[in-house]
Amino acid sequence: MKAFTRIMGTAIPFLEDDVNTDQIAPMGAGARMSEDYAQTLFQHRRHSADGAEIPDFVFNQPQFRTGAMLISGRNFGCGSSRESAVWTFLAIGVTCIITRSFADMYRENCLQNGILPITLPDAQADQLEAAVVAANGAAPFAVDLVSQEIKGPHGLRIAFDISPADRARLLEGLDDIGLTLKHKAEIEAFEKKMAQHIPWSQRADASSL
């Protein structure tokens, strides 16, 4: 996984609440094995029924076709667990998503892919949204995970919180599986213990125990 330290670039304002993953990464006319994720992003919202692009939809505006960070509302990423709803943002360069709150699984999928998920309290979110809307893609914003700060035009500085563990994981770009496998001995011991105490838990077909 790519490490995250600091980024700078366009902040894309998508100021809606309860944005679900079916919207972010729709299944289209059915599932396909390989996908162009940049193309998939908000596919249905970007185009009208006849296939024409809707010019003022934010991700169709020239300054927001790619970007470094996304700003959105409450309960971002609710619905399906599909990880493609994270890959679509990576595909257009977004590696930081700033919201008022995240759906639990979506936040986890961000962390798994080196995307920094930031949650801001209302006062700071209001301040940032206003600045991002005012900038309209013309001035860059920066996010620094080392100093835990968001910076913007006219001296804007907003501090953010993140758990030390999530911060360390992103900063170091740690391989999650590798980290867990350091505990291989404990996993083995656990399996042995459970086979003794709760034998049916260690056998999928427990009828033959």
Partner: peptide, 14 residues
């Protein structure tokens, strides 16, 4: 429920 990367994690580590 889990994402694809978490799925890989469960496959590898249980």
């Amino acid at each position: 429920g889990c994402g694809t990367t978490e799925l890989e994690h469960v496959l590898a580590t249980q």
